[in-house]
């Protein structure tokens, strides 16, 4: 992390390709029937309580249970494994790719990944915030929590055992959280993004700049 950040370079890569490509994998085995096709627009769940379901992408029939699989993001079907239509597929099979136009928030998020100091997962495991950190987050929000090396920030759950994870890296506040509690995170994937307090104005500047430049 440097004080001089080449904003222009970072920012310029987004107008060229302001998309995220999301692979859709089957959650389980079964016979697949597509319900959309290439270049079709899709939408994620909507409504005040996310109670309006997203676009139906495909159906997966297993043990006489036809399960609809719906889109969780907005975007367009970029590609689709047409050959799988009507076939029995395995679990975790890639069946299509969605092109999801990045929102301002998501772009900021991505840029910040270059700027913030990342704390990476030491092992492929499940992670949780340490109890007192979690309660402080619940009370005051994550941005209010400053941590320093040696703090017990996370709990790693590996092979049914919980181990405390001590923070190593620059002291600062927890700016971004990249993991879902209880979901497996691969080794070296970022868990949290830390922002040293003196860099906060810089971060604000980036956010402001993206907000103003990006429509």
């Amino acid at each position: 992390m440097h004080d001089e950040i080449d904003f222009d370079r970072i920012l310029s890569q987004y107008p060229a390709d302001p998309y995220e490509y999301i692979d859709i994998l089957t959650p389980h085995a079964g016979r697949l029937v597509f319900k959309t096709s290439e270049e079709q627009p899709v939408s994620g769940p909507s409504g005040e309580w996310q109670h309006v379901p997203g676009t139906l992408l495909y159906q997966l029939e297993r043990e006489r249970n036809v399960k609809p699989v719906r889109s969780v993001v907005n975007g367009v079907v970029a590609s689709l494994e047409r050959a799988l239509d009507g076939q029995f597929v395995e679990a975790g099979e890639k069946v299509m790719t969605l092109r999801h136009p990045l929102k301002k928030r998501e772009i900021i998020d991505r840029i910040l990944r270059n700027v913030l100091s990342m704390f990476l997962a030491p092992e492929r495991a499940k992670y949780f915030f340490a109890l007192d950190i979690q309660s402080r987050i619940d009370k005051h929000g994550q941005r209010s929590i400053s941590i320093k090396p040696g703090d017990e920030v996370l709990t790693m759950s590996l092979m049914k055992r919980d181990t405390p994870v001590l923070y190593q890296g620059e002291p600062g506040i927890i700016h971004s959280v990249y993991f879902t509690p209880g979901a497996t995170v691969d080794q070296d994937q970022p868990l949290i993004g830390i922002c040293p307090e003196d860099k906060l104005p810089l971060i604000q500047k980036i956010i402001a700049r993206v907000k103003s430049e990006w429509e």
Binding site: H28, A29, E90
Partner: peptide
């Protein structure tokens, strides 16, 4: 060899068995 979501999901295992 067939990939399934989990060794403990009977539905996947039976679906593969049938298939």
């Amino acid at each position: 060899a067939w990939r399934v979501s989990s060794y403990t999901d009977p539905n996947d295992i039976l679906a593969v068995a049938d298939h």
